[in-house]
Design a protein around this nucleic acid. Structure first.
Length: 778
DNA sequence: GAGTTTGAAACT
DNA sequence: CAGTTTCAAACTC
């Protein structure tokens, strides 16, 4: 099933919609019929103008009343939780401006019973208001309540509207392999989307849970002093597990200037994760780059058939990114491209995983790309994953707290974001699993032998993108050592969840859907993450990372200091990296200048960092330039033209002169044909090179005779050194014989050649015989 | 690789 | 908002 429903997709910008359809595995068989609202309707048929209420409508589990409440909440308040009854999707919307103090185990007066989370299943939402005084209301209190498969979360909004969060069916039962019979671990997939927002907008926190694998997807508002950390984790349940595996995600959120902390802990039986990312040029949307962690559980527990939440890839473990947003009091109305947000001090997030049975190592890696600004990459993976090499206590990372609760099966990793307000982040201790051992802002060593976190060294800058490929499930499964995670954050406060954000190029700023307000997203490139100062970039170890992306061309700016939109890097919200620019200020060493430049750009054009290619009007092309081009001499058939460069035709809003970039243009068709021919030629050449290289490599590797079953080895492969020497001996013998008998030279040569012929025949005969024998015996 | 052309961005 | 300047990429030789 599509975790991301078409309706939900409909609210996504073109760049998202343009990505290939997400191929999800089928829904759980017991999925209620109400899932029709989550039907796999063609996303394209859904108007982009889908509003938040439609998202709420996606939650079949909600009763009409609940739906109404949720709708009301989404439109008038700041928090919404909804889910489909299938338990595969949770959607939570919330606002950072709202005072949130969800408490698990409590109930609202309207709710019948306190929530009783299943054993080893826990959802902790702890969001703190930006300021109680911001709207004159005290922070609200959220209450989670379980109602069958649903999890009601109430009190998250200022208005106190109850929120419904459906638990996936897997939540209702222990996640251990015990009882499964097949020894396969069940996985639960979460997707958490949080978006801080201004009070005047409709921020969203989304939680999505799927029966297998987990995803976390977050978004954040710009210009907030937050730190984002991405966590990806993979876990499998060993067969011999003594108990259910417990995974908790603790998302610590520090709101700017307020220092309050929002935390969310999601506990699932088995959580596997990955970070999805994509790198493509801004225009060709159908290539995907995905950093994926494919968990290969060496300890016998084969991962259950995983569900892919966002990515069409079928992977046993998936986790998208989490980010938390809050509002910037400085420029609350200004959308900012995401990477810029990071430069503004945001921190992305924090997750942690614990296994009571699988030893996991913990370690950190430092970015090799931006040595100036070490970035910690923490990955949590299953046991035996070869990439886990280093054991480094997370305590070394100032923004990551490891919390080992004595006597608790839970193991916490808490990311403490910096607060500009100087307040102490609060600990995640509102739930029934509250443990006093959890201490704020104090690095803790992992002292449990049973629970360790495995952290591979993930050189963020070793990633070299590969040629984009069509998004098919087959082509996406590319095993590579590349590891590049990208963070997806909203450029502006988000009223809706945009869950399908995994297949985006770095730096992509996603245009808001029509009617969706001025929200935009930006995809944080890995390079950007690596430059996060003193922020832990927590990610999942990834033995298999999928990347289909195009490398961004390095800029060559000389006068702009890479702080103007002339610079493609800057315009795309990226730091310059491996560029040829001169006097570059587009880096962390010049954060203040960069921020000023960002602000200046936004002052000039509030949508400066949004994509120029967006959806056109009804009846027009799906993609068109938002402003149109102004070409005068190029005929819009050269890359000077932004439309042509984006491989789209000029539209009615273009002001170009002598435009030849329209559908029926013969010049354009000719160019297209030429381009196609050139592309085919390049592909053929590439294929030829590849084939030749393969053949040469194959020849070079044939150092010893090898009889492969049915391999069709040629006889010459039997000409080993020994055979050659024996042949030479035979030839020498003939030569000596001819010499001893005083044979003429011509006859001697003939005898030698004849002997050589016999040798060859014997070799061929043996080769054939060996091949035949092998084919019989093998 | 140097020089030219081009059009978006920035500026006035 | 229009005209001009600046800038860096695209293009040509």
């Amino acid at each position: 099933m599509d975790v991301v429903s078409p309706d939900l997709n409909s609210i996504l910008p073109d760049e998202i919609m343009d990505t290939e359809a997400i191929a999800m595995e089928e829904d759980p068989p017991n999925e209620p019929s109400s899932s029709s609202t989550l039907s796999e309707t063609e996303p394209a048929q859904v108007p982009m103008e889908t509003e938040v209420p439609e998202i709420v409508g996606l939650c079949p589990a909600t009763t009409p009343t609940q739906k109404t409440q949720a709708l009301t909440t989404s439109t008038t308040t700041d928090s919404t939780l909804c889910s489909n009854s299938s338990g595969t999707q949770l959607l939570v919307t919330s606002s950072s401006s709202s005072g949130l103090n969800p408490v698990v185990g409590q109930t609202l007066p309207k709710l019948s019973a306190p929530i009783t989370l299943p054993a080893n299943h826990q959802l902790i939402l702890n969001k703190v208001a930006v300021s109680p005084a911001a709207d004159g209301k005290p922070p609200g209190t959220a209450v989670l309540k379980q109602e069958g498969q649903k999890l009601l979360v109430t009190g998250l909004s200022k208005t106190g509207q109850p929120l419904v969060l459906a638990l996936p069916h897997t939540w209702s039962k222990p996640a251990t392999s015990q009882g499964t019979g097949d020894g396969k671990a069940q996985t639960t997939q979460f997707k958490v989307v949080t978006a801080g927002a201004r009070t005047d907008l409709k921020p969203v926190i989304g939680v999505q849970a799927v029966s297998s694998a987990s995803q976390l997807l977050g978004s954040s508002t710009p210009l907030q002093a937050q730190q984002l950390k991405t966590v990806q984790f993979t876990k499998k349940t060993p067969v011999s597990t003594a108990g259910p595996m417990i995974t908790k995600l603790i998302i610590t959120k520090a709101l700017n200037n307020k220092g309050l902390t929002s935390q969310a802990a999601v506990q699932a039986p088995v959580v596997t994760g990955r970070v999805l990312s994509q790198t493509t040029p801004s225009t060709p949307p159908r290539s995907i780059a995905v950093g994926e962690s494919v968990s290969t559980v060496p300890q016998s527990i084969s991962s259950s058939s995983s569900k892919v939440a966002i990515s069409p890839l079928k992977s046993p473990s998936k986790l998208t990114v989490v980010s938390v947003a809050s509002q910037s009091p400085n420029s609350p109305q200004k959308p900012v491209a995401l990477p810029l947000n990071v430069a503004l001090g945001q921190q992305i997030l924090a997750v942690q995983q614990t296994s009571t049975t699988s030893p996991v190592k913990v370690g950190t890696s430092q970015s090799t790309a931006q040595a100036v600004k070490p970035v910690q990459t923490v990955a949590v993976g299953g046991v035996g994953q070869p990439q886990f090499k280093t054991i480094i206590p997370l305590a070394t990372q100032p923004n990551v707290q490891q919390i080992q609760v004595p006597g608790s099966r839970f193991h916490y990793v808490r990311l403490v974001t910096a607060t500009t307000g100087g307040n102490t982040p609060q600990t995640a201790s509102p739930s029934t699993n509250t443990n006093p051992a959890i201490q704020p802002a104090k690095p803790m060593m992992m002292n449990t032998a049973a629970v360790r976190m495995s952290v591979p060294i993930v050189p963020a800058q070793t990633v070299k993108q590969v040629v984009p490929k069509p998004m098919t499930s087959a082509t996406q499964v590319v095993t590579t050592s590349q590891t590049q995670q990208r963070l997806i954050m909203p450029a502006t406060p988000l009223p809706q969840i945009q869950p399908n954000l995994t297949n985006l190029p770095p730096g992509t700023v996603l245009a808001p859907a029509p009617g969706a307000g001025s929200m935009g997203y930006a995809v944080l490139p890995a390079q950007y993450v690596t430059q996060l100062p003193q922020s832990a970039f927590v990610t999942l170890a990834s033995s298999s990372v999928i990347h289909h992306s195009l490398p961004r061309k390095p800029c060559n700016c000389t006068k702009s200091q890479c702080l103007k939109l002339y610079c493609d890097c800057f315009a795309n919200g990226e730091f310059c990296n491996n560029c040829n620019c001169v006097n570059c200020f587009n880096n962390l060493d010049h954060e203040s200048e960069r921020l000023k430049a960002i602000k200046a750009c936004l002052d000039r054009n509030p949508v400066a960092f949004k994509p120029k290619i967006g959806k056109g009007k009804e009846g027009e092309s799906d993609r068109r330039h938002s402003k149109g081009c102004n070409c005068k001499k190029s005929g819009c058939l050269k890359n000077y033209c932004e439309c042509y460069e984006a491989k789209i035709m000029c539209s009615s809003i273009c002001k170009c002169v002598g435009c030849k970039n329209f559908e029926e243009s013969p010049e354009r068709k000719t160019l297209m044909h030429l381009a196609d021919a050139a592309e085919v030629r390049v592909q053929q050449q590439t294929a030829a090179k590849t084939k030749l290289s393969s053949q040469i490599s194959d020849l070079l590797t044939r150092t010893t005779p090898a009889i492969t079953s049915g391999g069709g080895k040629l006889p010459y492969t039997f000409v080993t050194k020994e055979v050659a020497e024996a042949t030479c001996d035979c030839l020498l013998e003939q030569a000596e014989k001819a010499e001893l008998t005083n044979q003429p030279q011509a006859l001697a040569e003939r005898l030698i050649l004849e002997e050589f012929g016999r040798c060859l025949r014997r070799i061929i005969s043996f080769a054939s015989k060996a091949k035949t024998d092998c084919s019989i015996n093998c």
